[in-house]
Design a protein around this nucleic acid. Structure first.
Lengths: 112, 112
DNA sequence: AAGCTATATGTAGCGCGCCTACACATCGAG
DNA sequence: CTCGATGTGTAGGCGCGCTACATATAGCTT
């Protein structure tokens, strides 16, 4: 998959990854890799700024912890973030319906 | 739908719209409106440059004609364009599978 | 005739959002 | 002690679609 195809859907992916659990940035990247069957391999330079943006937006909150001498910044969804996730899921539904409808299976829409 | 959500899928939409028929730019915009149920309303400043880009890429060819005193530039797919369309459709499939899989219906992927 | 809308094509410039490349730090293995 | 894995972060660039504008004819209204 071309790397920048996620344009506009990164937030949705991150929020969905944090749905129901707390993860730190590095673990989010790994979770996305596994959850996508290896198709998604987001660079840190993409994820970390995005997480900070989500935090500024109030969709996630972070806590620092130290595990084995390494500092981790663990993120979790806020209630606003959960609402945002639901909105993103709806937007995704609409998006795929519209684009998928135009791309069509193999025929035209109404050309009987 | 947010206007710039198409990022990376515009070419696919245009190619799909030209699949099996010849249209000029203005008609393409109208076809997209109808085919999407009104959800897509692409501005001319988006479509015309995109068509020229597709022509430079060899995916479409254009012919000028005059209908009722108005000049029309009618586009049609080339064989390379048809191949590109098929590739775009595959990419779309993969894209929706991957992202949709991560966004999930309502549960986690393998959290047994 | 003047003015407005629909039809029809096009350019210039901006801004968002993600990527590339780099920088820094600790720990375990070789 | 060097290297890779783990872990977080910044700086700068660039592609792509959008906004706004420019141009032109046909046809309808007033």
């Amino acid at each position: 998959m071309k790397p920048d195809a996620l344009r506009g859907h990164l937030d949705a992916l991150l929020l969905a990854t944090l749905d129901g659990r707390e993860l730190h940035g590095y673990a989010i990247i790994e979770a996305l890799q596994q959850g996508s069957g290896g198709a998604l391999d987001l660079p840190t330079g993409t994820v970390y700024p995005a997480l900070r943006r989500l935090e500024r937006a109030g969709h996630v909150v972070s806590d620092w912890s130290t595990v084995g001498g390494r500092k981790r910044r663990t993120y979790k969804l806020t209630s606003a973030g959960l609402r945002a996730l639901n909105a993103e899921r709806s937007a995704w539904q609409e998006f795929t319906t519209v684009i998928g409808g135009v791309l069509g299976g193999d025929g035209k829409w109404a050309q009987t």
